[in-house]
Computed example of a mutant assay.
Amino acid sequence: MKIYVVRHGADEEGYRGGWSQRGLTETGVNQSKMLGKYLHEHAGQYDIQTIISSDLQRAVQTSKEIEAALNIPGSHTSDWREMNNGELAGMLHAEAEEKYPGIYFNTLEMHTAFPGGESPIHFYTRIKSAFQNLCTQLEAKKMKSNVLLVTHGGVINILYYVLLNQEWSNTSSFYTIHNTSIHTFGKMKDSWSVLDTNREVGK
């Protein structure tokens, strides 16, 4: 039983991310197409039965390219969104600096929320809970395995900390997570573990 976690393709630079609904760049679309092609060509190896993605535009665009390549309809949900940065979402960096000087993900206190958004501890708890719910559904056979999950860098980073049983904060080191890279989590005996990290394809 496996979960393949993928970061969305490259998106527009110069803007705050988080809950931004800005889409992929041409490079990001091409990355997503190449990943879909790779997964189709290696369908026997991955045996993907279910596709889930964040419902933010950059993740949905990535997911739809893979869905088309594998001919599997996807489910797009808010559960797997990036950190909710509230009023800063999709804002130009310069504008954000002017309106909210010094407010970044790693400068917040763990229980302090972005203006109109969520706090780092809420983000961590939300993602840990989403992963636990996904595992429960798979183990109860309420969802077909194997699963491909298209989400965001911050989300995947938290999943590493959860699976490796490491303490996390918004100032913790960030695992290497490239656009459209594959991270493989597997059920080994009675627990989930990391089987493969940051596998880049289509280059």
Rank of each mutant, 00 (worst) to 15 (best):
M1F: 10
I3P: 09
V5K: 04
V5T: 00
R7F: 08
G9Y: 01
D11M: 09
D11Q: 08
E13Y: 06
G14P: 03
Y15V: 04
R16V: 08
G18H: 00
S20D: 05
R22L: 14
G23L: 07
G23V: 03
E26M: 06
T27P: 00
S32T: 03
L35M: 12
K37A: 09
Y38W: 12
L39Q: 02
L39D: 01
A43S: 10
A43R: 13
G44Y: 00
Y46F: 14
I48M: 03
Q49L: 01
Q49V: 01
Q57K: 14
A59W: 01
Q61E: 15
E65P: 00
L70E: 06
N71M: 10
N71S: 14
P73H: 04
S78I: 02
S78W: 08
R81A: 09
E82M: 03
A94T: 15
A94F: 11
E95M: 12
K99V: 11
Y100T: 13
Y104G: 12
Y104I: 05
T107R: 07
M110I: 12
T112W: 09
G116K: 07
S119P: 08
P120H: 06
H122I: 15
F123K: 08
F123G: 07
S129A: 15
N133T: 12
T136I: 13
T136Y: 11
Q137I: 05
L138P: 13
L138C: 09
E139T: 12
K142W: 06
M143I: 14
N146I: 05
V147N: 04
L149T: 06
L149W: 04
V150N: 01
T151P: 04
T151D: 06
G153N: 07
N157T: 13
N157V: 02
L159G: 10
V162T: 15
V162S: 11
L163C: 08
Q166P: 07
E167Y: 12
T171I: 15
S173L: 15
H178V: 11
H183C: 10
K189E: 13
D190P: 02
D190T: 11
W192R: 05
S193H: 11
S193T: 11
V194G: 11
T197D: 09
N198W: 02
V201S: 08
